[in-house]
Design a protein around this nucleic acid. Sequence first.
DNA 1: GTTTCTGCAAATCGTTTGCAAAGCT
DNA 2: AGCTTTGCAAACGATTTGCAGAAAC
Lengths: 153, 153
Amino acid sequence: MLSTEQILEVMSGQGLRITDQRKTLAKLFGENKGYLSAKDVYEHMGRKYSGLSFDTVYRNLRVMEELGVLEQIVFEDGVKFKGSCNHQDHHHHMICLQCEKTYPINFCPMNLTDTPDQFRVVKHKFEVFGYCKECEENREEELVAAANHKKGV
Amino acid sequence: MLSTEQILEVMSGQGLRITDQRKTLAKLFGENKGYLSAKDVYEHMGRKYSGLSFDTVYRNLRVMEELGVLEQIVFEDGVKFKGSCNHQDHHHHMICLQCEKTYPINFCPMNLTDTPDQFRVVKHKFEVFGYCKECEENREEELVAAANHKKGV
DNA sequence: GTTTCTGCAAATCGTTTGCAAAGCT
DNA sequence: AGCTTTGCAAACGATTTGCAGAAAC
């Protein structure tokens, strides 16, 4: 993962101006492991900048994605962003459906996949979804609480 | 793949009425191996039905997806549909970036993936993108043509 | 001082909805 | 006939744009 400072360095290195909004964005993605939607980002930033507009968020997310400091993924419920893994080695991710944090998978199925010469492979996607330990524990607690409630406890 | 007739059977079996529009939709997905966007579908159908509305297309695509006769995938450039594979065994797809036809991969990387007990896996996605033989040949022809053009041939 | 960035408002895109008329069984 | 489906128009949410003023270099 790129740090807050690294993100800012890349941006200023490309001649982009470092505004307060961009500092906050860099910090947000430098410290957060999970995926955030544009709305999430807007809400996070809205705390610091009362007069913040949605389009500034969108514009900066796009710029940062084009620069490569952010990774963009299309989920079923929309587009989300996270800081780039400064990926020297190719890898995949397990993604928690609850908190949307990601965990690396150091295994690429592509090496093992039979690709007939009738098909020229360009790229591939391997994503595993589920629940991480923390979220799983919270879920269990909730289920127990719900069950107790049902029993009238 | 479900045939045109099978699609219609499922639909009427669920009490849905078989309208001309739906017959055309069933035929389209019964005979087409690739992914189609709502717009693609609208344009295909527009040839037969001059007074066709977009929302009818959307409504029917959703109904058919809920019924399970269509599969829906979110691509980078939007939602697309294709007729369901009715084969019961789990598999993945190679998808041609040009024609968007799909080819089955009879291999699931999930079996080989180390899933630490810290993570409860719910679902996974494995998709391979590239160019199928046909499209690849067309591409080559184009490249050759372009090269010749450049040389002034 | 020049260029880039921001906020506003308005535009656009893809998709969904309410409703009256038309179509299927 | 009775219910479903259609087309229209209008609404909707997410994202993008043009523009004038503000901020960074």
